[in-house]
Amino acid sequence: MNAFWRALSKNRLALGGGAVVLTLAVMAVAAPLVAPHDPHKPDTKRILEAPSSRHWLGTDQVGRDVLSRMLYGARVSLAVGFVSVGIATAIGIALGSAAGYHGGTVDAAVMRLVDLMLVFPRFFLLLAVLAFLTPSIWTIMSVIGLTGWMGVARLVRAEFLALKEREFVIWSQSVGASAVRIIWRHILPNAMAPVLVAMTLGIPAAILTESGLSFLGLGVRPPHATWGNILNDGKEVIELAWWLSVYPGVAILLTVLSYNLLGEGIRDALDPRLRQSVGRFGGRGR
C-alpha cells in the first residue's frame, strides 16, 4: 500500500485530477450550504443576466442562478455517476466471479451474455428501454447501470482465472471452504484493484451518458438540474447567453478529465501491467 501511495503521489496529473474530484464531491454534498441562491426559484426580472457579482455565473431563461443550479446539478450528475456505476459494478462482480470461479458452462453462458450486450450500441439500448419506462432519475440511473456492467464482469473473470490457481485458493478449497466464502474472502479482495480502476473510469462515462440523454431531452427531467439539462436549455440561447453553455460544458469536461486522470493514475500506481486490460473499459459510454 505504501508503494501505491508513493507512486500515486509522484503522478502530478493524477493528483490534480483527484483534487478536482474531491472538491467537486464536497461542493455537491454541501450544495445547499454553499449555493448562493435557490436553484429552482425563477426571477422574472433577471432573465439571462450575464455573470455579475450578484450572480457569479449569470442567470438562465427563467432568471434562476446558474451557479446554484450547477452546484445542485453536480449533485445529480455525480449521483447518477456513482449509483449507475455502483449498479454496474455489482452486476459485473456477481457475474464475473461466478464465471471465473466456476468456469465451464457458467463461464461460457456469462461470457456469451457479455458478448451479446456488447453488440448493442449503448445509446440505442438506453433509448429503447427509456421509451418503455416512465422516466425518473432512478430509471436513468438503473438503465445506465444495467447497460454498463460488461467491462467489470470481464475484468473480474480474468482476475479470477488468474487467482484461482494460486496456492491460497487451492488450499482453501482443499480444506472444504464454500465457494461463496472463498470468493468473498480470498479472491475478491485481490481482484478489487482493477475493479476500483474500472469504477473510477466508469463514473465519467456515466456522467457523459446522462448529459447526452439530457441533451436529447430524454434524461433526468426538470425541475432537477443536471449539467446536461442546463446545457440543453442553454443551446436555445447560446449566442445570447454563452454562460449557459460554456460553464456546464466546461464542468462536464473538467470532471470527466479529472476522473480519467485519477483513474489512470490509480491504475499505474497499482500495477503498470494492468494498463492493457483495464484501459479499454474506460472512456466514453456510448
Binding site: L208, L231, I238, E239, G249, I252, L253, L261, R284
Partner: peptide, 17 residues
Amino acid sequence: FVGFATPDFWLAVMLQI
C-alpha cells in the same frame, strides 16, 4: 484526455456556431 472528456453534443453546437 481532452478528446475523451469533451461532450460531443457540446462540441457540435460550438462548431456550428
